[in-house]
Design a protein around this nucleic acid. Structure first.
Lengths: 243, 243
DNA sequence: CGAGGGTTTGACCTACCTCAACACACGTGG
DNA sequence: CCACGTGTGTTGAGGTAGGTCAAACCCTCG
């Protein structure tokens, strides 16, 4: 039995997300087949395989990553509540990256075959699915620009402000802090930096009073300065779609 | 008048692309409103604006890029025949990057509003549109992994083998060479390298007998060695969708 | 013939990497 | 209770891949 029917989903009322019509919500509820809880470290989806179950993240944090033939790991992006997992499996038949949980996560479960049928059954939901893909593409483009054109400090500042805004937008800020449950190694693998350099840069930020990311908690003491350092343009609204 | 009706399009018979049903081809033909030729250097779409015209590239080469607030430029990817331009404009209402022509290009033109209606009118075409978005996401992920985890020589080797395979797949190889009409600066801005270092690495490849990219022409003398250097897994088929 | 865009080359420098140790917290078993 | 491993964060020392600067060398084109 579903403990959280879509119509009572705490996420979808957040202003970050494009609002659904009651009809859409009802349709999604008919698509939702289960809820799942996964433990930290669990692999949710595997690069190269076709995930028969697709997910919307309700709670928790995780990451998408690729393992390269040379053994190194690139983190594609961090995964937060509201993210949809398995889009490539649905549209291409195969995931191009793996997804792993970093905290305990609660997931909304969909049947991959039913999701594919969305194109025949519910055009506006199909549009949202495509929009999700397009938004992710845009984010990846921005990430690419960070890796290619920003130096280490700028990259880290960029990533932290990004995460900060995202987590704030889904209401996870408490007392000027958001939970950020990754290791420094994860951040390094995300930004193409070494662990050591990531660590030292974070220490500099901390000593400089810019921000403090420790014990799984991120505090931005001076968000403007950080954004300026990162060369981030003033936060665009950029609504997201939920599945 | 259209000089190339979709049913006679030379691209869509290439094995690289997922084949359409006659019904789909007819539908696309009803969507196609024009053909356009743009000159080298022309801006086809602009970051931040909603392009009212969407394109499928028939001929020529171009690039997608973002300009960062700090003035630097990140090339997102190279644009080749078969690519669809304006997906973000269609799905999100706004382009997140610009598109510029590097050679004279021939484009298939669609009306943005009509494309959006594809979700109501033609589910299987809508699926293809989404698949295009998903494929692009996968490619961006791979690019991300290159920027983050490969050194300069590996990045260049990776990019060249990628381009080589792509251009080969659409039948542009002649006498062991494909046309590649970019500047070294473009490649540098794509891979997050300086022009100087890109140039020197290319020179090393040339002297080492690996490949030769000059005068707008790319020759891979030893594709296997290059792929080995780049740590590229043996070419996956990875079909693409056309619009 | 000069101007401008792209490529090439050399000299120098630094941002970042690697290696290596240590610190601290946790759990497990003796 | 302590001894220990293991995983994560921290710090220092030294090395190098790749950046920047600068100049020259093509081209083509007006």
């Amino acid at each position: 039995m579903l403990t959280i029917p879509c119509r009572a989903c705490p996420l979808r009322t957040r202003p970050l997300f494009v609002q659904m019509t009651p009809d859409e919500v009802a349709f999604m509820e008919s698509l939702k087949i289960d809820e799942a809880v996964v433990e930290p470290g669990a692999t949710i989806q595997m690069e190269g395989s076709a995930s028969p179950r697709l997910f919307t993240v309700l709670q928790g944090q995780g990451l998408r990553y690729k393992t390269l033939p040379n053994g190194r790991r690139q983190i594609i992006c961090f995964v937060f509540p509201g993210d949809f997992l398995g889009l490539q499996a649905a549209l291409l038949g195969e995931m191009q990256h793996s997804v792993e949980a970093r905290t305990r996560m609660m997931l909304c479960v969909f049947d991959q075959r039913r999701v594919v049928e969305v194109f025949e059954e519910h055009p506006s939901r199909a549009r949202s699915l495509s929009a999700i893909a397009a938004v992710e593409g845009g984010i990846l483009g921005e990430t690419l620009a960070s890796l290619g054109q920003r130096d280490a400090a700028q990259r880290i500042a960029w990533a932290l402000t990004r995460v900060w805004n995202r987590l704030g937008a889904i209401g996870l800020e408490r007392d000027g802090a958001v939970p950020l449950t990754f290791r420094q190694q994860d951040m390094a693998d995300f930004l193409g930096l070494s662990l050591v350099h990531t660590n030292k840069t974070l220490a500099r930020f901390r000593q400089g009073g810019l921000c403090d990311w420790s014990d799984g908690t991120l505090r931005l003491h001076d968000p403007e300065a950080l954004a300026r350092l990162a060369h981030v343009e003033p936060a665009r609204p950029a609504k997201r779609h939920l599945m």
